[in-house]
Design a protein around this nucleic acid. Structure first.
Lengths: 183, 183
DNA sequence: GTGATATGAATGAAAG
DNA sequence: CTTTCATTCATATCAC
């Protein structure tokens, strides 16, 4: 979202939306004529401040996949800027990360990707909260890339593997969040 | 073959745009509007040839969600008809599929015994050449997904912080989608 | 100029 | 983590 020229789509920022709507959907609370509060039916609509903080955590603090503990803390903090739940934070990071990668895959390989306004330094990895991944690719271990952009046919499978070298430690879970409970 | 007929091909004949791009293939400006090149700085405006090819891929080849690999190839091929990027192809298929489904869902609630979970039956596709995938997931297309997950038992256990250190969770298989984002 | 419609773009949510 | 689905915003174009 940021490496892109987002010239649009900055929907409402209702820092304090009085549309306390939650779960209660389909109630037929069809707005009469004016959009007091937009589609606040189900989807979380992050406020600008929430976005700012989330991006700050993502880019300046290297947070990519916060743990449940972090999620709680983050959402608690963001709650002062608007309604938010833990899962929103979870999904946000998940989506943000996935889409950044996705963009690198087939989105514009535009060499000139500058961010306007919503600047955010690249993964400088100034991690203050060490959540470093142990094995293999840590922060920034992205290795694989898209194939040569010019190739008439030859359809390949759609999945590029993600497993690092097949060296798998017998009893070592490479997921930082998965605690090993083996003696 | 027309679940959604283009009742009005509004804006897609300006391939002759002088917008600092590959010279399309002349012709075409015979629309009924004196509209030359306006959207250069905004969103992508597919040319008729690009649309034709995209639809051909969609309907005749059953392409619904091209892979990053395919997207690169498709966009590369379409580039000779006008400016285009990978993300445009991505969005095009995404939108086309979504809107076809959306219209179908709206126009035909048809709760027949056709409740197949995910697959949308070939709307009108005449799958001539099932490329890598069929006209949908249900019709014997591709089925492979991620490589075998590594964690045999430890699934999505990032919430294990809820357990005090030292407390080992034996075989907690949490429902992958029954998150416990307690707030 | 305004509204309706089509569609490109974006993103939250969820499935796989 | 990857990919898809659903919904929404933004904009282009045409009808009036």
């Amino acid at each position: 979202m940021e490496p892109q020229q987002q010239q649009q789509q900055q929907h409402q920022n209702q820092e304090d939306m009085n549309c306390s709507n939650n779960g209660g959907k389909g109630g037929g609370t069809s707005s009469s004529s004016s959009y007091a509060c937009r589609q606040s039916s189900t989807r979380w609509t992050p406020t600008t401040d929430q976005i700012r903080i989330l991006k700050d955590l993502y880019y300046n603090y290297g947070v990519r996949s916060p743990t449940a503990d972090q999620i709680q803390r983050i959402s608690a903090r963001l709650r002062q800027y608007g309604k938010i739940e833990g899962k929103n934070v979870f999904y946000w990071f998940q989506n943000h990360k996935a889409r950044e990668r996705q963009k690198k895959r087939f989105f514009s390989p535009d060499p000139n990707s500058n961010i306007n306004g919503t600047a955010a330094p690249p993964p400088t990895a100034s991690v203050v909260n060490p959540q470093t991944r142990g094995g293999g690719r840590g922060s920034g271990g992205w290795s694989g890339k898209l194939p040569p952009p010019e190739e008439p046919f030859v359809l390949h499978n759609k999945f590029s593997n993600l497993t690092p070298p097949g060296t798998r430690v017998p009893f070592l879970i490479t997921d930082p969040h998965s605690f090993i409970f083996l003696d």
